[in-house]
Design a protein around this nucleic acid. Structure first.
Length: 484
RNA sequence: GGUCCCAUCGUCUAGUGGUUAGGACACCGGCCUCUCACGUCGGUAACGCGGGUUCGACUCCCGCUGGGAUCACCA
């Protein structure tokens, strides 16, 4: 039997990283088993589903390189296009007495729950319509349709006897006593099926062999299995992944800051880094930390998945991103950083070769593309802002002469503006004034970059070029003397 | 509150009865050095508690404690 897994996000918001990890694991398992990965869109919540969310989900997945074998744009993989199928099955359940109409209003249900909670009973549905005779004016029970006066919901008649056993591939066996499970609504009064019902039909129709999802779905699983049984179908295998928590130990959500895939993309993270981080959160392969996509495919299995929830650690993700950034070929990196420079409204004052030289000096100092772009500002911008503290510490009168001399030396270098030639110019100035490199390099650094932190000073000068270097040195000269 | 899940350094984890409990991130220190990084060397740091089982438990069983998820006409 070929493995078929699925990822079924609902288009009701951004694709966030805790959620997408479940999709990633489903995808990896399918690839590992040379099976198929299906993307399905759970859009039965017509109130909250939006086109924007759908587009963001699709684009996020593409950016990550999580490729689906079946799914959008094929309408067949949208629940909203499968209502006929859901109706047909609900009708069947109704006819067989395995489901029944429930006439309780939302307000009534709410009151029921509140009272149960007050009396320390479980807040589930008490089954009051389970054996109630439908009103006489209903000739026969059909699916809800408010416009036609059929304002009720359809509930699944869950068995009271026995137990439902989930043999989870990750969690092991979980036994649910059937008497603990109440009758859930499978069709809403607006004629739209609910998730637990639709998902069962989808998983069956699309031939899903392994349902891989977050363990927040574990309590739903016996309900879904019962529906499979009622329909005379065999449930798939289940693999429930532990959750991803925020630093506070709670399920990761929007209030934990940057959590969407887009957020990380826009912050200048690489998809490889995000993927690598996510795959190591809850899964391991010995002590290995860095995984190529192929290695993920090759090694992934449920046996190596952990059972306990993991806390999202932004620092480690940053480290991984740094790793991939350092590994990136410079020409590629230069192309990668361009959109980030453009986004800042800056114009690159040189060709690709120049940008590559600049990037080469910066790449071990930036952990993201956004940082790389920011760091490159002193190369790119015509005017730089000099940090007051740096200026007062290093741009002092006593260094003015040496700075002036250096400007002269560099200005007269001629065609050879190489690091070697620049170093030689420094040596001449150092010798003439009997000072150490450190004494000269820092003032120069402040003059050229505006701060005290930068790549090696010769590199900076070589990339900056003679004109800009000399001009900035002379500007700094004014600060030196003015600082008296 | 009911049900279900979970429990090794701060964090991610290796570990499947006998280990000086290993690695990674972070943190701290040395080296490198024109600054900052990179790199490199080293360091601090964990088996929640209590009972069993066993010659021997981080590993197996039970209880406790703690944490989490879930209990919608959301998915």
């Amino acid at each position: 039997m070929t493995v078929r897994t699925r990822y079924a996000p609902s288009p009701t918001g951004a694709l966030h990283i805790g959620n997408v990890r479940s999709g990633l694991f489903a995808y990896l398992f399918a690839r590992h088993a040379h099976g198929a990965f299906i993307l399905r869109i759970d859009d039965t919540d017509t109130e909250r589903s939006t086109r924007e969310s759908l587009d963001e989900i699709l684009e996020s997945l593409r950016w990550l390189g999580v490729e689906w074998d079946e799914g959008p744009p094929d309408r067949k993989y949208f629940q909203s296009s499968r209502y006929d199928r859901y109706r047909e099955s609900a009708l069947k359940l109704l006819a067989e007495g395995k489901a029944y109409p429930c006439f309780c209003s939302a307000a009534e249900l709410d009151a029921m729950r509140q009272q149960a909670t007050r009396e320390h009973r479980k807040p589930g549905y008490d089954g009051r319509c389970r054996d109630r005779t439908p009103p006489a004016e209903l000739p026969k029970v059909e699916l809800p349709d408010k416009k036609a006066g059929r304002n009720y919901t359809i509930r699944f008649r869950a068995p009271h006897e026995g137990a439902t056993v989930v043999d989870d591939l990750i969690k092991g066996r979980a036994v649910f006593e059937n008497r603990e499970i109440d009758d859930l609504i499978i069709f809403r009064s607006d004629g739209v099926p609910t998730y637990n019902f639709a998902t069962v039909l989808d998983d069956f129709d699309f031939g899903i062999t392994h349902v891989v999802r977050g363990d927040d779905h574990l309590p739903n699983t016996p309900r879904q299995m019962q529906i499979f049984y009622a329909l005379g179908l065999e449930p798939p295998a289940y693999a429930h992944l532990p959750m991803v928590m925020g630093a506070d130990g709670q399920k990761l959500s929007k209030r934990h800051g940057a959590t969407s895939v887009f957020a990380y993309r826009d912050l200048g993270y690489f998809p490889e880094a995000l993927l690598n981080y996510l795959v190591r959160l809850g899964w391991s392969h010995g002590d290995q930390e860095i995984f190529s996509r192929q290695e993920m495919f090759d090694y992934f299995d449920f046996a190596s998945c952990g059972k306990s929830a993991g806390i999202f650690n932004a620092e480690k993700l940053l480290w991984l991103n740094f790793h991939y950034l350092k590994e990136r070929p410079v020409p590629q990196l230069a192309q990668d950083v361009k959109p980030f420079i453009a986004q800042r409204g800056w114009t690159i004052p040189g060709d690709d070769a120049w940008l590559e030289r600049a990037v080469a000096t910066l790449r071990e100092r930036a952990k993201t593309l956004a940082e790389l772009a920011d760091f490159a500002s002193f190369y790119i911008l015509d005017e730089i802002a000099i940090e007051p503290k740096a200026a007062s510490k290093f741009l002092k009168p006593e260094i003015a002469e040496a700075l002036d001399a250096l400007a002269g030396e560099l200005d007269s270098l001629g065609a050879d503006f190489s690091e070697v030639a620049i170093a030689a110019a420094f040596e001449r100035v150092l010798g003439r004034f009997a000072i150490k490199l450190g004494q000269l390099a820092q003032p120069v650094r402040v003059a050229l970059t505006g701060g005290t932190v930068s790549p090696g000073i010769y590199e900076v000068i070589a990339v900056l070029g003679r004109a800009r270097t000399v001009a900035r040195l002379r500007t700094a000269l004014v600060l030196c003397t003015g600082a008296i």
